[in-house]
Write a protein that binds this DNA or RNA. Structure first.
Length: 777
RNA sequence: UGGGCCAUCGUCUAAUGGUAGGACAACCGGUUUUGGUCCGGUCGGUCGGGGUUCGAAUCCCUGUGGCCCAGCCA
């Protein structure tokens, strides 16, 4: 039997488990260009807490991508800080990841690499790119400067290599107290990116490490250990959250110095934020420590352990993770999306059974002697294609939900009220004849009569408005129901600074005692149900007892009645505040205002003599390089604004962070290109393509045009043919256009441009399309 | 304040210079022995100002707003 070799394939969209996003786009390109031959990701948690729903997004992304591309994913515990980390979190995290449905290809710890990491640090010292600094922590801080001022170099920065080597080795051996020395990269104390101001690579920590014991007295920092661990493992795409964007520079700096191609690259995406909750390990730790919740697995917690105990399925979480998408924009996801994912999954998984959470006694006064004492009821509604049923005990005494009776029903109430009829699910239609009350006027019992002819069929001549659920009073099983609501009452609990606990929702847990039908009494923990008309519930894995079952409400059912009647226990009181009106202050700042004095004359000349627009004149005049290029080009083609347009709009884009001289395009080349456009030799569309080729090859535009046959097509006869064929190929769009969807004009022009490889004269095409569409309408 | 990143329906997200689309939410209706599900429909958006282009959400300039960076945390 041959094992199929795992080879990277770019998956079709419909076979992806991770919907396409900017990262998979990068991967596709890396595979296509053979920058990488395979895909390797990793999930690198620090074992200092529990995994939460935010991690789930990262897990689904990393593992999902590996799955989709037949790649690999490593689980790597980032155990570089022995003072905050704990082995018990390692096991919990492994459990949670497996529960979520993923299995790693390799299990690693950053500490596995301590020897190699140390060796690499030594190499850096030897090459003069790292040094031992003996400044104190405070001194290092003050030497670093601020975001606006450059830092100062440490007096220890130019220690001899041999001395650095010696000191570093003795740091490792434990000869120095914590804080006496650190190892730093020698980069640039004036770097605008603060992280590059000689970042600390190693610090002395005299702590027992749960894996390496007392072998080490120095530990690498994240910025050092993480990129190098990635490289060591052959990771291709290292995905992390946005706050590490600034760290990418040190990531590349290290990998470039210590590794050969193919090197790993870091890509950052926005972490998940969820309405009405906190997704930050530190804040979750606070809740646990302050006993605001019962533990990491409190069903109200957004931890995977909490979600799991609550009864949420891993499939629902994966589906949710996929729905939220992967982008670089900070966002806050509506909790309704999570709830939808949960319901969507459970609708097909959770058998329907009956439970009464808030019981109200009902006595059926005229139950016929031949009425069934057991009713066979399907676990599934007709629209769920699954089989199975159970027997539900039925009799004279029942419990119904208090909220299903109203002595004085509001408009639109489709439940029980005095004199009114309602159907008992799977059983008879009943009428409320009498309402019994206690001394203080509370309803204690209902006396109802059944219509004996309504078992399994509808009454004749009248419509019964509603159906309610029930449990046998004699044979129902007493149970506890834990109804959860959002943990915080504010959509963004972290917004108000540190005291996010003041935003805790006091009603996040409501405990109710009621009854369930006996069929569920002995089910195992974590069994999920839909308690009809109420929501999805799961048997609690910790507190439930066979004789005293406990059920956690996973999520309510959608309830359009509660919404319209505002009868909901869950008050959606904090609807998004009205948006602060956008400032429409568009104060015109003069583009010439910031010009250095010595450039003002140039600006004036561009403005007055060459007739450039103010902003273009200022832009080019203010940049000597651009200015030189501009004037050079002008010598070859005397169309100042035309050349300026190309410089400002196209050249500037390509220059980004580079010097103009690094670009393959020369001033004369650009001038020639503009000439071609001005003389109508090529379309402006083709000109951009030509410009692209120039950028890559530095060749003359005329040559490129000739070689690729890009001369503009301006022959109306020939173009009309193309136009007609395009219109004929898109009858629906033609109809829509005639129906008033004028935006389609661009679509037609675009199609013609495509068919002519961009050579058609677009103005002419536009006219022809317009004419043609008008003509035979 | 220097640097980095970001900005599309209420929310999340597509559109890679050529029809602004989907999902969630909301609203209306149909089906229904769950006020569930399902089905149909409605509502609703390119942050402001300039520019380039036949054509701009997309490219350029500028303004505004948000997030990240001054740990020997990650």
């Amino acid at each position: 039997m041959t094992v199929e070799e795992a080879k990277p394939t770019i998956p079709e969209d419909e076979e992806r488990s991770v919907s396409p996003n900017f990262i998979t786009d990068v991967i596709d390109e890396d595979l296509e260009t053979h920058r990488h031959q395979r895909v390797a990701t990793r999930f690198p948690p620090e074992p200092n807490g529990y995994l939460h729903i935010g991690h789930a997004k990262a897990i689904c992304l990393n593992f999902g991508i590996a799955q989709d591309y037949r790649g690999t994913t490593n689980l790597r515990f980032d155990d570089t800080n022995p003072t905050t980390e704990d082995m018990r979190f390692v096991e919990a995290m492994k459990d949670d990841i497996r529960w979520l449905g993923f299995e790693w290809d390799n299990l690693f710890f950053a500490s596995d690499y301590f020897d190699e990491l140390y060796a690499m640090a030594v190499r850096l010292i030897e090459s003069g790119e790292a040094y031992v600094d003996s400044l104190s922590e405070e001194e290092i801080r003050s030497y670093r400067g601020t975001v606006t001022e450059p830092g100062r170099e440490s007096p220890y920065r130019n220690r001899a290599v041999a001395e650095n080597l010696d000191l570093f080795e003795r740091m490792r051996a434990g000869e120095f107290p914590a804080g006496a020395h650190v190892l730093r990269a020698k980069i640039d104390m004036a770097a605008r990116n603060m992280i590059m101001r000689d970042p600390v690579l190693y610090r002395i920590v005299h702590a027992h490490h749960y894996r390496t014991g007392d072998a080490w007295h120095i530990y690498p920092l994240y910025d050092f250990a993480h990129p190098l661990s990635d490289a060591l493992e052959g990771i291709t795409h290292s995905l992390c959250s946005l706050e590490f964007e600034n760290n990418r520079e040190i990531y590349d700096w290290l990998v470039d110095r210590l590794f050969e191609d193919p090197k790993p690259h870091q890509y950052e995406f926005a972490r998940l934020n969820l309405d009405y909750t906190v997704v930050s390990k530190r804040k979750l730790i606070n809740l646990v420590r302050a006993d605001q919740v019962t533990g990491w697995d409190d069903p109200r917690m957004p931890t995977l352990a909490g979600l799991r105990r609550r009864g949420v399925t891993p499939e629902a979480i994966r589906s949710f993770a996929n729905r939220v998408g992967v982008t670089k924009a900070n966002s806050r996801t509506d909790i309704a999306l999570l709830e939808h994912s949960i319901r969507d999954d459970l609708n097909f998984k959770a058998p329907r059974v009956m439970a009464v959470v808030d019981p109200l006694k009902v006595v059926l006064t005229n139950l016929p002697a031949d009425a069934p004492t057991e009713i066979e009821a399907s676990y599934w509604p007709p629209d769920v294609p699954r089989e199975g049923s159970r027997s539900v005990p039925f009799g004279r005494g029942l419990y119904i939900e208090q909220s299903d009776f109203a002595e004085d029903p509001p408009k639109g109430f489709r439940r029980l009220s005095p004199g009114q009829e309602v159907r008992l699910r799977y059983a008879y239609v009943i009428r409320c004849d009498e309402v019994l009350k206690d001394a203080s006027g509370n309803v204690t019992e209902l006396r109802c009569s059944v219509d004996p002819d309504t078992l399994g069929k509808n009454p004749e001549g009248r419509k019964v408005r509603g159906t309610i659920h029930w449990v046998s009073a004699e044979r129902g099983v007493a149970a506890e129901f834990r109804l959860y609501d959002r943990l915080f009452r504010s959509p963004d609990p972290e917004a108000g600074g540190e005291d996010f606990t003041t935003q805790l929702n006091p009603d996040s847990l409501t405990v109710k005692r009621g009854f369930v039908e006996p069929s569920v009494a002995t089910d195992p923990p974590e069994t999920r149900y839909q308690f009809e008309r109420q929501g999805y519930f799961a048997r609690d894995s910790v507190d439930s007892r066979p004789e005293a079952p406990v059920f956690n409400r996973i999520v309510t059912l959608r309830d359009s009645w509660a919404k319209s009647s505002k009868g909901s226990a869950v008050a959606h009181e904090t609807k998004a505040e009205p948006k602060t009106p956008k400032q429409e202050t568009a104060h015109e700042t003069d583009p010439a205002a910031a010009l250095p004095p010595e450039r003002v004359a140039v600006f004036d000349r561009y403005l007055d003599e060459l007739g450039l627009s103010r902003s273009d004149a200022a832009l080019i005049a203010g940049d000597e390089e651009l200015s030189t290029f501009f004037e050079e080009a002008l010598k070859a083609h005397d169309n100042p604004q035309g050349v300026a347009n190309w410089i400002v709009n196209e050249l500037l884009r390509e220059r980004k962070g580079k010097a103009v001289s690094e670009l393959a395009v020369e001033a004369t080349g650009l001038a020639e290109l503009v000439t071609l456009v001005d003389h109508g030799v090529i379309s402006s569309r083709s000109a951009k393509d030509v410009f692209g080729v120039m950028l890559e090859s530095g060749r003359s535009p005329r040559e490129i045009v000739k070689e690729q046959g890009l001369e503009q097509l301006s022959d109306a006869g020939a173009l009309t043919e193309v136009v007609e064929s395009v219109l004929a190929a898109h009858p629906d769009q033609v109809a829509a256009y005639r129906g008033g969807k004028s935006g389609l004009l661009g679509f037609f022009v675009g199609q013609v441009m495509r068919q002519t490889q961009g050579r058609a004269n677009p103005q002419l095409v536009r006219e022809l399309v317009d004419e043609s569409l008008k003509g035979d309408g």
